[in-house]
Design a binder for these strands. Sequence first.
RNA 1: GAGCCAGUAGCUCAGCUGGUAGAGCAGCGGCCUUUUAAGCCGUUGGUCCCGGGUUCGAAUCCCGGCUGGCUCACCA
Length: 498
Amino acid sequence: MEDYNQLIEIRKEKIEKLRETGVNPFPYMFDRSHMTADVKHDFENLEGQDVSVAGRIMAVRVMGKASFCHIQDMQGRLQLYIQRDAIGEETYTMFKTLDIGDHIGVSGTVKKTKTGEISVFANSLELLAKSIRPLPIAKEKEEDGKKVIYDQFSDIELRYRHRYTDLVVNPEVRDVFIKRSKIITAMREFLNDNEFLEVETPVLQPIYGGAAARPFKTHHNTLDTTLYLRIANELYLKRLIVGGFDRVYEFAKDFRNEGMDRFHNPEFTQVELYVAYKDYNWMMDFVEKMFNHIAQKVHGSSVIHFNNHEIDLSGKWRRLPILDAVKEYTGVDVSHMDEEKLRKAAKEMHLEITPDMGPGKIIDEIFGEFVEPKLIQPTFIIDHPVEMSPLAKKHRSNPKLVERFEPIIGGKEVGNAFSELNDPLDQRERFMAQMDLKNRGDEEAQVLDEDFLHALEIGMPPTAGLGVGIDRLTMLLTNQSSIRDVIFFPQMRPEKHS
RNA sequence: GAGCCAGUAGCUCAGCUGGUAGAGCAGCGGCCUUUUAAGCCGUUGGUCCCGGGUUCGAAUCCCGGCUGGCUCACCA
């Protein structure tokens, strides 16, 4: 669909006119010597020297035979001073036809203007790419040291659908994604430094597993078989532990066919990692160290600011058994309740309890409603009921619990970990229990994976495993309240054209 | 899925109890060789989300739909 727009028509005509005067509106390359930020940071050394910079025109102020404009590159903005007598009349005439949004390359001398702004005084200028669609450009002004932005591109739907535009005009959006990249880099560094091997496992799986969720279903034509987009990669990574890779991790796109809200996108990123010969106690220490490393790399500090809270990731985090947590925050001791009593207790707390929920799920409901939002400082919630953790090893001192933990920060869980279940007989029983839940109507109950059991039968060493939601972690470290603001292209309903 | 709110120029928005659409910015034409929301003069630009209804007359009122946001419920 091509929408008619007078502004676009005018710019298309400009392209024709440029070609008529021998200017290629889309040349092939430009030799850039400096980024905009280099010019600013290195001003002392660069003053009076010639540099070449390139970027997108973001503001123009023409004053007859001289002009100012700001260009923007990946690092920021820089002012250019463009005089007719310095770049020649022909080029200057061409420059005056350029629009906000065009890419240009400029060579010139680094100097400060009368008002003290570091600028490049152009002695040559060329158009690098013409933009024909107007940019929803905002104007900004410093007032009392504060940045006031006028006419900001703020339509949330358009910002997500046209993220490239959002990134051009809203610098704070770009900052969030730069941090996201740094978070992943820091985590990868930390894992590699700890002897982990980065691996890849199937996205298309004949049996989905490793989490409680509804999958996306697809079909392979040649094999004429159903395949599922992975909801987790846990069972494959554990197969690799069986195979002798003692420390593995994978940054995985996972897919869950469930509702969308500010915490959930149908595809999301999770890092999962597994360590042979370790248990969940070791993993808790590891998580503390890893999160500190990441915060230091991204913020230069272990203290982060999230949602008006100051959160300190350093030191030892509180380790709180989930049943104790429920007791502490609700005053109700659920540790010895049977299913019937639990149901009653939950109803008294005005929770909606459906018949397919088992005791574990009911406890999880209570926890999610009354405890989790209150855990602002980093906390490990540990030792969950066995029934809600079919892949975790039974607690060494209580067979009704498993050795599991969830790190909770800012009132939201950012991960999940256990001492991995490696007893093939127990694992088979747990799968059978999940089948019972499935028969009760729990659509998210896990499916028995015979080949995974086969692997455990070959023998898996004691292993600690961890999953961390990268999107959630990024929200936390960039202080964003919606997952859509940490995913470049969040899932949207397809646009309908009439 | 439910409730509330919103959709008007490229952007940000105004438009009251119905009388036939406006501002700033952007654009276009001028003036201007140190500006920074540059300024000054002039000016173009609209399927008022879509469809139906009420009315002499609808951006405005009513019904239906589409799209989005927020809140709530389930999953990371």
